[in-house]
């Protein structure tokens, strides 16, 4: 097959024919994925999310990690479609690398297909559970489980298993039935325990080696309270 294609590509006319054929094949392939392999409710949610061109919001971050004590912090969040989320703050803020992708850009960025996992009740709402599996190697997640409120067309919970950074879950709450973006998000993530050289210990501390090695990987939580959303939708242009 490969050899035939290479021999066909030797003349300009044939090369154009082969290129058109490949393009047609991809188009049909994507069409069939969209029509058959992507959940229709997710497509509705994706369309809603895609309509967001830009948004800014005030965000309050409350970190819950057993070995970090940090008071709640405030920051301003600014999102422009296709760009990484930008933060600014007068304080020192730890911003989680994962879990702030409210528009699910990372999931929708590359081609994928979905697998229906049935229905599940979440906070007295009957929700649809699907798995999102990327078909593009460039995607940085291996699998995502999305729990969707199919009536209000939004995601309630996601569990994303990344290829490099472990897995994390997002629990989202919305202020109003029509809200597109959440006002409360709980991000659960895995992280390594801090390893500090002894000479940087401020006080003499007893070191329990067994405890330390058993606690190498810890789970952390970050609670995000988002307010003052200023959203610019595509129709506003």
């Amino acid at each position: 097959m490969k050899r035939t294609l290479i021999s066909l590509c030797k003349t300009p006319n044939n090369r154009f024919f082969v290129q058109t054929l490949i393009a047609l094949f991809y188009m049909l392939n994507i069409q069939s994925l969209s029509a058959q392999d992507i959940d229709s409710n997710l497509l509705k949610i994706k369309r809603r999310m895609d309509s967001i061109e830009e948004f800014s919001a005030q965000i309050r971050l409350d970190l819950d990690v057993s070995f970090i004590n940090m008071p709640a912090k405030n920051a301003e969040m600014h999102y422009i479609k296709g760009k990484p989320v930008d933060f600014s703050s007068d304080d020192f803020v730890l911003i989680p690398k994962r879990g702030l992708d409210f528009t699910l850009n990372e999931i929708f960025k590359y081609s994928f297909f979905t697998v229906n996992r049935g229905m599940e009740e979440k906070n007295s709402i009957l929700c649809k559970v699907i798995n999102v599996i990327p078909t593009d190697k460039k995607a940085d997640f291996a699998i995502a489980t999305l729990i969707m409120d199919t009536v209000k067309n939004r995601i309630i919970e996601t569990e994303i298993t990344t290829k490099k950074d472990g897995s994390y879950t997002l629990l989202m709450q919305y202020e109003k039935p029509i809200s597109v973006l959440p006002y409360m998000v709980e991000v659960n993530f895995e992280m390594e325990r801090i390893k500090i050289p002894l000479n940087y210990m401020a006080k003499d501390v007893e070191i329990d080696k067994k405890k330390l090695s058993s606690e190498d990987l810890k789970t952390g939580k970050i609670f995000l309270q988002i307010s003052d959303y200023k959203i610019r939708f595509m129709e506003d242009n």
Partner: peptide
Amino acid sequence: SIIDILLGNLKQSFYFEGTL
């Protein structure tokens, strides 16, 4: 360098905004 050592492990999970 002290801040780098203290925050080294957190770099994997967090971005830092502001200075310590």
